[in-house]
Write a protein that binds this DNA or RNA. Structure first.
Lengths: 226, 226
DNA sequence: CGGGATCCGTTACGATACTG
DNA sequence: CAGTATCGTAACGGATCCCG
């Protein structure tokens, strides 16, 4: 019963799609890249998913060792990426980069979870980062704390506060999406939608620099490739 | 009617999946990375696809400017990647790399087209290539000629013969898949399943070197990431 | 209240037949 | 060869209900 609508083609791409090509699969993994999540967290982060589908997907993804179900000592069950599941990072990065070129749907559903930005943002920062960039700051998005870490071209962004952030910033989800889509210029973003709550102002500037580089790197070159 | 089961979530990953997340989408793009193809070519390269689905997908992918329908002067209609569609390359690379870790399905469908290897192989070679690698050779897979080009870490593999190949090699589809899956060691591959038809034996060696590097790069490090 | 399971209407997919 | 048309089936979407 586990394999119904599979390609069964001798090709690694087809195998990858057999594993994570079903509806919601990749979006579930995307949210888990922000850190472990409960059933309800995923449900609110994935507007429109039916509970039975979410349950089915979680079982399937656990079966192929991409995620695992964990019972905490408080009796709370959370889902988390396995090391194997964490390797979907680059795949999601590419998906994110590819997706930015399409216009947002005119009637998008309102999102109440900010987990979505974890991979998107990390992908952006990684595009803008160079080998000697180092940055660790906490970004509060609509009140939710996220910890951003940049170590050269290795970037990460996880739900939760930082341990020793260089700075603590605050912004909104909408502003972040707007700047990511290119609708809002980075300087307007920093002036009107980004506030330094605590720490080093220089860290904020370096954070913005990565944004600018990511955006110019995106819209600038690479048009006549092939 | 064009947008029925879409996510409509404000997230580039969801937008990417709304564009190319439907069944067969990415496999069609994969085959087109080997060069323009006719309806029938795609049909044989995608065992199991229904003709109406293939027709639907081709229209949809053309609508969002990833592929285009071309009428040649001989009245033959072919489908080809647009510049925008060619940018699915890295995405397919990541998908291919991610897919290699899953075991092949026990009852895979027999494939009569070798277009599938175009992206897979290019992805492998690109993983193994370093900045100063240069290679241009023709590889006949089960009689079908493919032209492999390596310029540093930019690699390509297209259906059709090379113009000025350094060498012309011949192998089989099964052997190629076996070595790509790690089931067949590269030295056994070269001894038993790879023949130099014409040209420089050194080019064959450099070709193998890229294979070995790609395989060790894959299975060697990167286990404890995150 | 979180974490599902069950049921049912709808949609997309798969297979085949048919046409220009 | 390049599709279109038809139809049965499996997956999805939405709601409701159940259990700890």
């Amino acid at each position: 019963m586990a394999s119904a609508r599979r390609y069964k083609i001798l090709c690694p791409i087809a195998r990858a799609l057999d594993a994570v090509g079903d509806r919601w699969d990749l979006l579930i993994l995307r949210d888990l890249h922000a850190g472990p999540a409960r059933f309800k967290d995923l449900q609110t982060g994935l507007p429109g998913i039916a509970t039975n589908l979410l349950a089915d997907r979680l079982v399937k993804l656990a079966d192929i060792d991409l995620i695992e179900k964990i019972e905490t000592q408080l009796g709370v069950t959370v889902y988390a990426l396995t090391p194997r599941g964490a390797k979907t990072r680059n795949l999601l990065f590419e998906l994110s980069q590819f997706g930015t070129q399409f216009p947002p749907d005119p009637d998008v559903k309102p999102t109440t979870s900010y987990r979505t930005v974890a991979v998107t943002m990390a992908a952006m920062l990684e595009r803008g980062a160079t080998a000697d960039d180092r940055l660790r700051l906490q970004l509060n998005i609509g009140g939710e704390p996220y910890c951003i870490t940049v170590r050269g071209t290795q970037t990460a962004m996880a739900l939760g506060p930082c341990e020793n952030p260089e700075a603590v910033l605050s912004t909104t989800y909408d502003a972040l999406l707007a700047v990511g889509d290119g609708a809002l210029p980075p300087d307007a973003f920093s002036r009107e939608h980004l506030t330094l709550i605590d720490g080093d102002p220089d860290a904020l500037q370096r954070f913005l620099t990565l944004f600018v580089r990511a955006l110019t790197h995106l819209g600038g070159a690479e048009d006549g490739e092939d």
